[in-house]
Amino acid sequence: MTLQIEKSAPRTEKTTQQNRGKVRLREHLMGWLFVGPFGIVFLALLIAPLAYALYLSLFQKKLIGGTSFVFLDNYVKAFTDPSFLSGSWFVIRFSLVSIPLQIIIALAMALILDAVTNAFTRFSRLMIFLPYAIPTVIGAVMWGFLYSKNFGPLTDIFALFGGTAPNFLSSNLIFIGLVNIVTWQWAGYYMIILYAALQGIDPALYEAARMDGAGKWQVALRIKIPLIAPALILILVFSLIGTLQFFNEPQILRSLAAGAIGPDYTPNMYAYQQAFSLANFNYGSAISFALGGVVFIGVYAFLFFTRKRRSFL
């Protein structure tokens, strides 16, 4: 984070000490005036709910016996609760598989689109981006139908090759089914970001590399990818944040595959179940808060280890 907001020097030099004080005060005021409205929303809708969640999570409500202060018991319970742990483990595994997959696909597409420009690739770019315009919920509904043995196309497609269609809604394949939905939904969006970054590279660099005898692949690997690394990191961070709080897609598919997707399938679903189905807002808040903490630490650790914080922030 480089902070270059020095005011241009001449004005400051000319002002007297007293005037400078006034200018400074004015700058404080104007700054807060501009930031203030967002600040209010920030306090009211982010800080306050977080504080409230923290407060709620320190209590316990029972069907018999009512509400009592339990301090950190809910957190102790969460981190020993098999539902929360297996849900967390699931989203971690899911991140490890789906994020690299999405980014590799997005990167491959972006590199192709950057290298080949004609009517077909321009059309492709738009079509590949299209799923981003679909609400995740609707996307999940659509894929739920596509996975159906009876009226999805999979049966027909696999029959062409003489095979039986896999059931992506069964317990053993639901993981792949979800990876597919998420990839379909987001790869195009990531592709556009990477593509935009690639287009921003100065073509003179390619010329220079070619002079040095680098082939197309080498240009891609040695010049293009390193130069768009900040965009890659940004995508990684956002997909990580998004995946750790996975909710919409499994929640929708649950009505089609209740056996394969339990109400505690992801930590967020578990928090929802606790709060809204079982009326346990206290424990639900504790799970939300624990999840928020895990995400925060996870992302921060990621940024720290990639040591690219400067370019991101």
Binding site: F42, L46, I241, Q245, F281, S285, S288, L291, G292
Partner: peptide
């Protein structure tokens, strides 16, 4: 603080916001 907020999962806020 704003940068930190980037990393707070939006859905984690839903339950306490609902209560408020």
């Amino acid at each position: 603080l704003v940068l930190g907020a980037l990393m707070v999962p939006a859905t984690a806020l839903v339950i306490p916001t609902f209560m408020m």
